[in-house]
Amino acid sequence: MGHKAQVIIAGKIALDLLCTPSTGIVHAVFQRTFYLRKTGTLTPAPPITTGNNARQSFTGQPSARAVSQPALLCCIGQAELERGPLNVRTTLNDITHVTVGDEWSCDQQLVSIGNIELDLSRAKIWLPTPLQQSAVPDPQSVALLARFLEINTPQPQVQHRINEMINEQLINAVKQLQQWLDHYQNQGGQPAIHFPDHLLGCGDGLTPAGDDIVVGVLLAMRAWKMPALDLLVAEVTDRLDTTSDISAAHLLAACSGSGIAPLHQLIDCVGTRDGNQLEYKFNNSRHSRKHEQIQSAATALCSYGHSSGYHAMQGVLLAARHQQLWPL
């Protein structure tokens, strides 16, 4: 007896987690989704190296901090669930029978969670579209994105002191991140200042705003092959224990190069395919389409989570501006 459902499409990380014979428990349950946690933990995969930058901390020494052991999580949802590395879109009609702590197991491509059975055999794998060679952010697109973010600043439901304090701390942390990146460039790959301590885990919401920003930065830096990426990945993986398990799982996915589909789409729009920015200056019709594309990708992202999409875009903007200051 039970609900049988098909997995329609699932992110690679989620599918890897489910596909190997495994067991675990239901980690969290929300209105339309729930998270599965796999028994055991994972050491983060080493970042893909783009240059000769070995993984080092800001002191130039290999990190002394123990690599944190983030939980293995994936997110099960219904047909409307966005495509993403941890997301598993299923034909489930309703998830009201799932409770935190329920055990799950996977065997023979069949995931059993209480009386729910998810069939993985026909699942499609979702991966972000492969990176374009030599893509760089296009100045006009960056300006468009900046304008969009300015107009669409999320309004908190109540204006209280804490919100202002969070904002202040975020702004400071983001500034520090910018400086950290800039120093990386100045010092030829050796940032001399401390990575911001209060960026990860900062903010209200399920995934703190600071984490969302970092996710945006990570993905954009990878898309545009920015050299500081490896160091940033190292700093982030060292600090995964300073935020919630769910947010850490998303950060870890971003470290390995994947985030939710609309975020990849946006980064794709902001970058130019061939780096030939003149093409856009002289081709008005193409340009107006670019404008629409960014507008629609950004609007789609804004509706993701409470403000997660918005903050991730801030991260993309941060990376784009940094890349413009320090072109290859």
């Binding site: 969290a28 929300f30 209105q31 998270y35 919630s244 769910i246």
Partner: peptide, 8 residues
């Protein structure tokens, strides 16, 4: 855990 919207 609560989702962000519910928290707000």
């Amino acid at each position: 855990y609560l989702d962000s919207v519910a928290l707000m």
